[in-house]
């Protein structure tokens, strides 16, 4: 089980915080074939992302293999400066990663 690394950024937009995450992941859908050998590349994609604000889940995303390679995710939360944001993701293979950011 490998680690999924990603960058997390919280931007103050005035009335809300925009959270952006950029993951490093192949997002292999399980449909694509190797053109030379005809073999199907096995599915390997991030399928679940959970965001917690001060420990309380605020957003859960479920993804299929139709999300692009090295995926980008953005969502908005209401919070205040100093709130702790934690985002974790898991893939269909069981790989996982966690990243944290403080709202400013």
């Amino acid at each position: 089980m490998a680690d999924i690394s990603f960058r997390l950024k919280a931007e103050n937009k005035g009335d809300a915080y925009e959270i952006k995450a950029l993951f490093k992941h192949p997002m292999e859908s399980g449909v694509r074939k190797n053109k030379a050998t005809g073999e199907v590349y096995p599915a390997d994609f991030i399928n679940e992302i959970t965001a917690k604000l001060n420990g309380t889940p605020v957003m859960v995303a479920e993804w299929s293999g139709a999300v692009s390679q090295n995926p980008f995710l953005a969502f908005k939360v209401t919070g205040k400066a100093g709130d702790k944001l934690e985002v974790s993701c898991t893939s269909n293979k069981g790989d996982s990663g966690t990243s944290t950011a403080d709202l400013a």
Partner: peptide, 12 residues
């Protein structure tokens, strides 16, 4: 279906 997002209080 490409993706779904579920929100609770605290997310827009």
């Amino acid at each position: 279906l490409a993706c779904t997002y579920k929100f609770s209080a605290g997310a827009l």
